[in-house]
Amino acid sequence: SPTTSMAELDHLVQVISKSHLETCQYLREELQQMSWQNFLQDEVESYQSKPREVMWQLCAVKITEAIQYVVEFAKRIDGFMDLCQNDQIVLLKAGSLEVVFVRMCRVFDSQNNTVYFDGKFAGPEVFKALGCDDLITSVFDFAKSMCSLHLSEDELALFSAFILLSADRTWLQEKLQVEKLQQKTQLALQHLLQKNQREDGVLNKLRFKVSALRSLCSRHTEKLSAFRAVYPDIVRTHFPPLYKELFG
């Protein structure tokens, strides 16, 4: 773009990467220290035998924790806090869980098909009590395919910001402002991919991830609605207030 200089893009990459590292919940070194420890069979069985509502509550708590870090990330993205408050809320309501799914590849072990959860690495079978096997399988498949792109922390940071700044979310009041921020982020991401000498296909593969993320999130909402229809009081009294605000 004639209006965005290389220096500006470099600066954006730097700022967004720093924000990502400051808010990423787990550093890669910390995860390595956990030595990729998997749950033992009796631990897996204990998760599987939890009542459905208890497991849902546990997962809602974990998702909410992760989302709080994403909110902090958003606040540190250049220009995000200059948007009107309505749009900040719209972008977070629609995008925070998507970023949690993107970030999941950092805590995912592709070889064992396990994800860091509640202190150890868990396979999809750990989440059986939720009663959402199809969604869990899709989430694991998504993490695996994100991992296969081998994105660096910088690239992940830029892609996360790009997702958060999606200008096509419904109910945005200052769409144009968001569009400008997203375009700048996309340029910075392209610039970074070129600089890192990534092959041309990576950006295209990331574009496909955008629709996959939307599908995962809408399926999460469907599953929550189905759960809430059976356990309205559990959601009302035991689920984290932030989770209810975002997905209620």
């Binding site: 606040k75 408050q85 900040q88 809320i89 207030p241």
Partner: peptide
């Protein structure tokens, strides 16, 4: 605003 009380709060807390 009431509907997104916590989100508002989180957005208003200063980043540290």
């Amino acid at each position: 605003k009431e509907k997104h009380k916590i989100l508002h709060q989180l957005l208003q807390n200063s980043t540290s």
